[in-house]
Amino acid sequence: MTELLSIGILPVALTLMAFLAGQKLQQKLKSPLLNPILVAVVLVLGFLFLTGMSVSSYKAGMNTISWLLTPATVCLAVPMYEQFRILKKNLPMILAGVAAGAVSCLIMVAVFGILVGFEPVLTVSLLPKSITTAIGVALSEMTGGMTGVTTAAIVFTGIFASIMGPAFCRLFRLTDKVAQGVAFGTAGHVIGTSKANELGALTGAVSSLSLVVAGLLTAVLLPLMVNLI
């Protein structure tokens, strides 16, 4: 058994299969709760538990995939460039909304964390909760956060924004398509954007742009925030 568990590509193969299973499940049942990342995590943890493979050797085996994250994040510049051109006319309003949302999100998390008396490391791990995992995990790592907690918080936030988004639009009386896109992208990053895409092409495009801008802005502001916690 231990010999089989030491096969180098096992963690990667396991992760890909678990992720694809999650994707199939979501396509079939169409529930945002069945996020493929979430399903894959549950399946992988189940596998580790049943076989006794350690989390650290699983993560070590995933290094080959993990190093692709930085170049993949760099690639977000390409869709951002394309949306910048399409959305030129509405750009100032979009950027202002994203900035207001990203800044207030950071302040809310920091203030809540201090009021409730969270350990600083926990608050720091939760700060990037509304931005795309690609930048959020890098920020968490850089500021001494727990990347596992950060990833879980980001995925939860995205699912929450995508399920509650339509209700939030009514609550805040967001009728404008551009404003809705800004809200989905700024609060719910990539997962919220998939919901925004269902609401319409313009909403989706604004949301995709907003999530990258929110990520960039948070990357600049978050380290300053960490000093205050």
Partner: peptide
């Protein structure tokens, strides 16, 4: 609670600011 409340408010603040500016500026696609 922290994640739910801050997500709701971030959604509202970012959307409201953009919508207010869109209506004020009157520029629209």
């Amino acid at each position: 609670l922290l994640l739910a409340a801050s997500t709701c408010l971030t959604f509202g603040i970012s959307g409201r600011v953009t919508q207010w500016l869109m209506q004020k500026g009157g520029r629209h696609d």
